[in-house]
Amino acid sequence: MSDVMAPMAGARSEGLISIEALPPQGQISLRCEVSDDYRAKLGELLGLGIPEPLSAVEEGDRALLWMAHDELLLLLPYDAVPEMLARLNTTFEGWFIAITDVSDARAQFRLSGPHLRDVLSKVTPADISPDAFTPGMVRRSRLAQVAAGYWLRSASEAQVFVFRSVADYAFQVLSLAAGPGGEVHHHTREAISEQDASSHV
């Protein structure tokens, strides 16, 4: 057994959507001003653009998520963290910045399926409608009673992150929300036709 165990690692539930706890994910929090000089330096180092507010940029196995006007979250392979930390620290030597490894602090889930938006709307007050929350956007809000981040990766897939201590809670709440018979057919027409098909069987 590996010494490294992500919270809820391997947990999976199938319902209106699939919910899967992701393996350990490298995560580096960057608190800094997102001014031109920081942008330039970060962009050069990471090979990634700087995300607009409430969004993310991704490239290969790396992504940069906008968390607040002075906070970014870098996602990268777990094993790549020490080297990246070292490079960041060197690059920003003497700059006003807080670079912290938070890879173990958060649990990441992948949610996918045609009922994605409906299931999310059961647990978060954020506007999840297709007009308001488009692929590539990041929104921090609530997941039932805990704080969570939502990164919409496509129309039917999202990555959701919570603090690791409440990973079990989040997984259970999401699984309940995705429970059978809980179709709402509010956000998507496809889901509606799907129901019509099944109800006539």
Binding site: A144, R164, Q172, A177
Partner: peptide
């Protein structure tokens, strides 16, 4: 109450 009952009545934080 919604889903907030039984095991998820409130979040239970877990250490590693």
């Amino acid at each position: 109450a919604g889903e907030a009952r039984d095991a998820v009545f409130q979040p239970l934080r877990r250490t590693p």
